[in-house]
């Protein structure tokens, strides 16, 4: 059997898997972005209670392994009567985990906004919400976008783990196909190449474009 006939016979499974991986990627990226901003901002708050909660969250999710968190959500949560389907569990675990890493990026980026920008918004007597929304966060986003590019690739790679709780993503399909055909080089090789191409030729150029757009809007380009 040649590689071409292998692809024409099983190609649809790779496509199905890649689509699920894509959906998992976008769901967990959205969740991670929200969590990162909420916890990143809360970590800078002056209220010690919420601040220590946010720090505990970040340390907890960064300190334990993603696979452990995923299995815990999948096997232990139902024992307390909370049953989530595996698709939801998958992107929840990935999003919660990468969100904790993202929170550090948000925190660092906000701290890197020059002091004068804060002072200027006090001088204009902007409300705290407006100050954040109009002055600080846009500049912070421009600073942290390159780091988010790396995080997005980490996130794509992390979604491969959801296959272990039977979400039929690319990794899962490759594994199933390997179990039925025993053509390991082709099945795993194809899956690896799909991940590589999506990371290198889809995610990276998109992030670069986004960086350019943001830089132009900030007048830095």
């Amino acid at each position: 059997m040649s590689y071409i006939s292998f692809l024409s016979e099983h190609g649809s499974r790779f496509i199905d898997g890649a689509l699920i991986t894509g959906v998992q990627f976008f769901c967990s990226l959205a969740l991670a972005a929200v969590i990162a901003h909420v916890f990143g901002l809360v970590m800078l708050s002056s209220n010690t209670v919420v601040k220590s909660f946010a720090i505990a969250y970040v340390e907890f999710f960064r300190g334990t392994s993603l696979l452990v968190q995923l299995f815990w959500l999948f096997y232990v949560l139902p024992l307390f009567g909370i049953t989530l389907n595996n698709f939801l569990t998958g992107f929840l675990a990935v999003g919660l985990n990468l969100g904790a890493y993202g929170a550090e990026l948000v925190r660092g980026a906000i701290l890197s906004v020059p002091r004068g920008q804060w002072e200027a918004s006090y001088a204009l007597s902007l409300s705290p919400a407006k100050r954040m929304r109009r002055i600080i966060i846009p500049q912070a986003i421009a600073t942290m976008l390159p780091a988010w590019g790396n995080l997005a690739i980490e996130l794509l790679k992390s979604t491969a783990l959801v296959g272990l709780i039977a979400v039929p993503d690319l990794m899962f399909q490759a594994r199933e196909l390997n179990n039925s055909t025993y053509l390991s080089t082709w099945t795993f090789g194809t899956a690896l190449i799909i991940y590589y191409v999506s990371a290198r030729f889809l995610i990276t150029p998109c992030m670069r474009r986004l960086e350019k757009i943001m830089a132009r809007r900030m007048g830095r380009a």
């Binding site: 491969a160 272990l164 594994r175 899956a191 690896l192």
Partner: peptide, 22 residues
């Protein structure tokens, strides 16, 4: 290096483990 960095570790583990015997 780029290839290794942008593909999931778990697939690499499967790849190394299952491809050798072929």
């Amino acid at each position: 290096v780029e290839f290794i960095r942008s593909t999931p570790l778990i697939l690499q583990i499967f790849f190394v483990y299952y491809v050798g015997p072929e």
